[in-house]
Nucleic acid binder design. Structure first.
Length: 370
DNA sequence: AATGCGTGGGT
DNA sequence: TACCCAAGCAT
């Protein structure tokens, strides 16, 4: 077991637990693309707020593994907040495609423009001001303030909720228990290195204090952990029961031109599911799980032929999308554009639409081979 | 306060 | 298989 670093607790802050957390972080921090290495002295320069902000927005409800490639692509294409602000919203949403929760991409772009236009290209430095920007809430404002500006803001994400509810055996269900957790984090906060402390707590949650089979023997908080003492770690956090996922059905209409090299696409309305994203023309998604939608929901008439179905699970319902295909001779009198199949990657298609199009293309190619 | 909002990986 | 979960936010 790691030695507790009680001798530095006085210098580091009120809490011996915090000192143990920071000492653990100095040797066990995850190496991530948006991170500076741990700084035991607390004197190193702080990281670029733009990169911290961008990573935090991407990481909302999204795994590190999924974010890494997007973070690289965004920072190479838009190295500064001014560069991102200068982009069109459609470029940003296209680059975001596949990452999910697309309101994040719209808010990201809106936030970049606010920072560029209203703040002279510099992010506000306090959690309170950051929280006023689009896409930045309780967690993200505290995380940016702590990591990029050194403000001792109490950072509470899903990892830290798990760590802290176990540490203090907090039995109140989340999200109601959030204020209690935040108060506990504020109590634990060391007097220095607030950013490292927040990242350390998240790393402990992500690598040791995991939902199932936590590795308590490796945990720097083990001597302090009430749940470990009681042996009921996995009973925390308590969460409200989830509702059953309903099923929905819809239809997508893949129109190819006579060459077979182009498909007709359009943009969805900016609110609601996949808001502002590119799609194959699609029907409404019926809350009825029965009954085929048929060719009637198509945006224009054609010799629609049902070629299959794709399944896609969203957060709060499962969708079955019937896929219809047709070859048409003339450009539809309908909103949209012809997209070259070879360059679909640049269109920025959400995963559901990617699935539907892949099915349609496979069908189309099988027809040509006959 | 409860609900809507994506996706991919793990068990 | 059918869940559960991941650096939440907006309304």
């Amino acid at each position: 077991m790691r030695r507790r670093v009680r001798d530095t607790a006085g210098a580091q802050g009120r809490s011996g637990a915090a000192a143990a957390v920071l000492a653990w972080y100095d040797t066990h921090a995850r190496d991530l693309p948006w991170r500076r290495p741990p700084d035991p002295t607390g004197q190193a320069p702080l990281p670029d707020p733009y990169r911290i902000w961008l990573s935090e927005i991407m990481l909302q409800q999204t795994t590190v593994a999924a974010v890494a490639a997007y973070f690289k692509a965004f920072t190479e294409r838009w190295p500064t907040v001014e560069a991102l602000a200068a982009a069109d919203e459609t470029e940003v949403t296209a680059a975001w495609a596949g990452l999910g929760y697309y309101s994040r991409a719209r808010n990201l772009h809106a936030c970049a423009r606010m920072v560029a236009n209203d703040y002279g290209g510099r992010f506000p430095e306090s959690a309170a001001e950051l929280k006023r920007l689009p896409g930045i809430g309780d967690y993200t404002s505290a995380a940016i303030a702590a990591i990029a500006f050194g403000e001792p803001a109490p950072v509470v994400d899903g990892n830290i909720e798990r760590v802290v509810t176990r540490l203090f055996r907090i039995g109140e269900p989340l999200p109601g228990a959030k204020p209690i957790v935040r108060a506990k984090v504020a109590e634990m906060m060391p007097g220095e290195r607030p950013g490292d402390f927040a990242q350390a707590m998240m790393d402990i949650g992500a690598t040791i204090c995991v939902p199932r089979r936590p590795a308590c023997l490796l945990c720097p908080l083990r001597p302090d952990c009430e749940a470990e003492t009681a042996g009921d770690q996995t009973a925390y956090p308590v969460k409200a029961a989830k509702k059953a996922k309903p099923k929905r059905r819809g239809a997508a209409y893949a129109a190819f031109d006579r060459s077979g090299q182009h498909i007709w696409l359009r943009r969805r309305v900016s609110k609601g599911m996949l808001g502002g994203m590119v799609e194959v023309p699609s029907s409404q998604w019926s809350s009825r799980s029965d009954g085929a939608t048929g060719p009637n929901g198509a945006p224009f008439a054609a010799n629609w032929r049902k070629i299959g179905e794709v399944e896609h699970g969203f957060t709060h319902f499962d969708l079955t999308l019937e896929v219809f295909a047709a070859v048409i001779d003339e450009t539809p009198e309908s909103d949209g554009w012809w997209a070259k199949l070879e360059r679909l990657g640049a269109e920025g298609l959400p995963t559901l639409m990617r699935k539907a199009i892949d099915l349609a293309i496979a069908f189309q190619e099988s027809q040509y081979r006959l």
